[in-house]
Design a protein around this nucleic acid. Structure first.
Lengths: 245, 245
DNA sequence: TCTATTATACCGACCGGCGGTCTATTATCA
DNA sequence: TGATAATAGACCGCCGGTCGGTATAATAGA
């Protein structure tokens, strides 16, 4: 095989890209290292030059995800014009907006991310994301408590709950699609909208705010996300399905 | 090797027992099937006579866990003397009590159950347990809503939150010990007690109850659980640590 | 009650493929 | 030109899983 030398950073990113694609389509366990290096067109030796193990590759991937996600909300975090409630709502809105905008693309991601074989991958990403976001949320809540907007004795705990709600929402969405034949779609949408409203009120009350202060989903948000999926061109199901193990 | 025939049900339970021990000590991934069958003293063929795959073994184990857990609260569920709030609190109390009683033993379990290599195992157990408990919780909450004790428009959602809080508490406990040197213990205990109080109030408010209605941890509960661990005889750390892979 | 037969529990050699190691070779650049 | 980073790929031990076969238990026929 001809030897191809690339800039190390490029090669590393490339490896992460191929790994991401394969992990998402086949799952972390089922996608073998050989698959990854075959896709990337490199040798075993080259791979182990960049990562000490398959596990480390997963870790790096999770970190990249988290880094990108955090970068996406940096403007909100830094915006001096926002008060704590505004900042919190802006953060929630941003993640909501991000979901809608990338809906078609994101569905492929979400749908695969919640398949059981992707548990490990998802958990790592979530862990890394939590580690990034938690301090941000804690700080916002703490400021809110200081200036009297929020009332709670445990900002860290509330931050945890916010993130729990976030992943729980994903979970509900995933379940909706997992079992979801077209007919169930309406039911799923309604269940999800109810759930989002519940989380809003729950957060309002946990933070000692009047009901309606926290906005997670604007009207129609859920439907927008859920139907964006169906609207996408749909690559006519007949995707290759090798791999049995 | 001599051929030993046992009653199938006994053999199956035995297999689950050995698998449980090995999965917990080494993790689902790291504990190999060969380890399990060696511990159980049977052949590959015998194993595959009982379970179609290693995965199925995990599934069966999770189901057994969930079944046992559900059986433990059956009396509360069936008690006609309890009103919805009482039943919910009794359920929470039961799980609390169970934790204290089995504290020494449970620590070994919890501590291992939250090690990262046990993610998969834990998630399966949690999934199975949720599937069992969710309907029970939903029914209690629905009754509470009917008789006016609780006020919420989404009993399923609230049930989910209750269970989320449950696993989140475990998570916090696990983290406390994971990083916890003896000195940090006090801090961990306080953090956990604060968290438990937060969850209580959160549930009160989500359910439209006066603060203080829901009781997750009675005073000293957290400390009791956390210190029971240290009090236990502690098998002098030098446990064998084969396995490197 | 003593077989013949069948169903079930069990055995263990074997397989492809896995993650990971190692030595050798080639490109890069001070 | 020599050192070092980057790449190649044969190789290793072990993994989960398969398969043809054997011993035991259960059942039926005489």
């Amino acid at each position: 095989m001809p030897r191809i030398v690339k800039h190390p950073e490029l090669r590393r990113e490339e490896l992460l890209d191929y790994a991401q694609a394969l992990f998402l389509t086949h799952g972390y366990d089922k996608a073998s290292l050989n698959d990854v290096i075959a896709a990337a067109g490199i040798s075993k030796g080259a791979f182990y030059h960049y990562f000490p193990s398959k596990e480390a590759l997963l870790e790096a991937l999770a970190e990249r995800f988290a880094r990108q996600a955090l970068a996406g909300v940096q403007d909100i975090v830094a915006d001096p014009a926002l008060d704590p409630l505004g900042r919190l709502n802006a953060l929630l809105a941003k993640s909501r907006q991000a979901k809608i905008e990338t809906a078609a693309e994101a569905w492929a991601l979400f749908e695969t991310l919640f398949r059981p074989e992707n548990l490990v991958l998802f958990h790592r990403i979530n862990l890394a994301a939590s580690a990034s976001f938690s301090p941000v949320l804690v700080e916002i809540i703490r400021q809110g408590v200081e200036d009297g907007t929020f009332r709670t004795f445990d900002p860290e705990g509330v931050a945890d709950i916010v993130m729990q709600f976030g992943t729980a929402t994903h979970d509900v969405i995933a379940k909706a699609f997992a079992g979801g034949r077209d007919a169930d779609m309406e039911i799923a949408i309604e269940a999800l909208e109810r759930r989002v409203r519940l989380y809003e009120i729950a957060l309002d009350r946990i933070l000692g705010l009047p009901d309606g202060s926290i906005r997670i989903g604007e009207p129609g948000y859920v439907r927008a996300v859920m139907t964006a999926h169906r609207a996408s061109p749909s690559p006519s199901g007949a995707a290759a399905s090798r791999k049995s193990r």
